[in-house]
């Protein structure tokens, strides 16, 4: 159990690293959000579950934090992507199609 927990922690740390790298390397804000959100969400799941498995007293609270992150993190990045689109930040030149044109008219 403890070994599995420590393995999960190291695995999650690797995805935290990838999230930071994705934030740095991707060309525009939408792709950055894609890389950042996905990698850090799985990283958090893995690290927090690992901590819960190493010390079983922490497990219930760790599960609450996991549920909380699973609910809020995608919503936060979605709100941010929508805000930057409505503000008029241009996507990268590689972008082929845009069916969202103009956003929602207020």
């Amino acid at each position: 159990m403890i070994t599995v927990g420590y393995f999960l922690i190291a695995f999650g740390a690797f995805f935290y690293f990838l999230g930071g790298l994705g934030i740095l390397r991707m060309p525009d804000v939408y792709n950055r959000l894609q890389a950042g959100t996905k990698a850090t969400t799985l990283g958090s799941f893995s690290v927090i579950l690992g901590v819960g498995l190493v010390n079983l007293d922490y497990l219930p609270k760790a599960l609450v934090i996991i549920a909380f992150i699973a609910l809020t993190n995608p919503v936060g990045s979605s709100v941010l992507a929508r805000a930057s689109y409505l503000k008029g930040i241009k996507p990268t030149d590689k972008t082929k199609v845009d069916e969202y044109k103009g956003g929602d008219e207020k």
Binding site: Y16, R32, L33, V47, I48
Partner: peptide, 13 residues
């Protein structure tokens, strides 16, 4: 703000 969001999740973990 996107980078700050990522940083916050990393810090929570």
């Amino acid at each position: 703000v996107a980078a700050l969001d990522t940083l916050n999740v990393v810090l929570t973990g």
